Computed example of a mutant assay.
Amino acid sequence: MADDKRGRDKQARDVEKRQRERAMGVALERADETEPPIEDPELDEIETELDALSFPATGSDVVTAIGDRDVEADDGTYTVEELVADTETEVFDSPAAVRVLVQRPTVATAIKRIVEATDSLQGVDLDGSQREAYEKTFRALKGIDADDEDEGVEAIRDWVLEQIRDDGTLPGSRAVRRQAAEFCRANGYQVRNDEWLGI
């Protein structure tokens, strides 16, 4: 491909297309989750406002740009600042990645607290497959029918924060799943072996 304006524009369009396809794939993967994504035209506006940022962008960049914007959820109203960690270690590849995070406030607030807590640790970040496993665990806890008050999400979030505070380490994703399964069983929630929490 020629290194001229047309070639660079095509590359930029291709990158945006791949990011949209990746975001759609994530959305389809999460379509059967119990905390349904917030479907709100306001999220479209938020994503449009984020186009002014240069991506990849940090959580601090996002909070500075749109931290005061409201997101309406079934259980109340959140600001973007309440859902996105205001740190340099939290990095988003695209506006769609921010949208995917803020669409699920219960999981987002738990992840935010953990990311901010790991900010104080040297060489420790919640990212990649470990972050995905944490999010999947929180979504599974959110899916417990009897768990109307999100007590499972809060209990495991607090357990992770305690591990960070006391041991100075971030628990492995398997340890988090195991702790979540123990919480479920101790509180009378059924966990089958073929489920994510069935450790």
Results as ranks from 00 to 15, higher is better:
Ser120Trp: 03
Glu49Trp: 10
Leu83Lys: 01
Gln103Thr: 10
Val191Asn: 02
Ser54Asn: 12
Ala186Trp: 04
Arg192Phe: 15
Gly152Ala: 00
Asp40Pro: 12
Met24Ile: 09
Glu42Thr: 15
Arg157Ile: 09
Asp4Trp: 02
Ile164Asp: 07
Leu28Met: 09
Thr169Met: 13
Leu170Gln: 05
Thr169Glu: 15
Leu141Arg: 05
Arg104Ser: 03
Gly143Lys: 04
Ile164Leu: 02
Arg178Gly: 11
Gly67Pro: 14
Leu50Ala: 05
Val153His: 04
Tyr134Cys: 11
Asp125Cys: 06
Gly76Cys: 01
Ala73Asp: 02
Leu50Met: 08
Glu88Val: 06
Ala31Gly: 03
Arg18Ile: 09
Asp40Gly: 10
Arg177Gln: 12
Ala2Val: 12
Thr118Cys: 12
Ala12Leu: 09
Phe183Val: 05
Gln103Val: 04
Ala140Pro: 07
Gly76His: 00
Asp4His: 08
Ser129Gln: 15
Glu47Gly: 04
Asp145Tyr: 02
Val100Thr: 14
Ala65Met: 14
Asp44Glu: 14
Glu132Trp: 07
Glu72Cys: 10
Ala97Phe: 03
Arg177Ala: 10
Glu116Lys: 08
Asp4Phe: 04
Ala108Thr: 00
Gly143Arg: 01
Gly123Lys: 09
Ala133Gln: 13
Arg8Ala: 04
Glu47Met: 10
Val91Phe: 00
Trp159Arg: 07
Ala110Asn: 05
Val107Tyr: 01
Ile38Lys: 03
Val26Cys: 00
Ala117Tyr: 09
Phe55Pro: 08
Val107Pro: 00
Arg20Phe: 06
Glu16Tyr: 10
Val80Tyr: 04
Ala175Asp: 12
Leu28Thr: 10
Asp194Cys: 05
Asp119Phe: 06
Met1Tyr: 14
Glu35Lys: 00
Gln130His: 13
Ser54Glu: 15
Asp166Met: 09
Phe92Met: 11
Lys10Ala: 11
Asp32Ile: 13
Thr109Trp: 08
Thr64Ile: 14
Gly123Thr: 03
Arg113Cys: 09
Ala23Gln: 00
Arg157Phe: 10
Asp158Val: 02
Gly168Ser: 06
Val160Ala: 08
Ile199Gly: 14
Gly198Ser: 03
Pro41Asn: 15
Arg157Val: 08
Ala146Asp: 15
Ala27Met: 01
Ser173Gly: 11
Leu50His: 00
Arg13Val: 06
Ile66Asp: 01
Ile46Ser: 04
Tyr134Phe: 14
Asp44Thr: 10
Leu126Phe: 09
Arg69Ala: 15
Gly76Met: 01
Ala2Gln: 09
Gln11Phe: 15
Val84Arg: 00
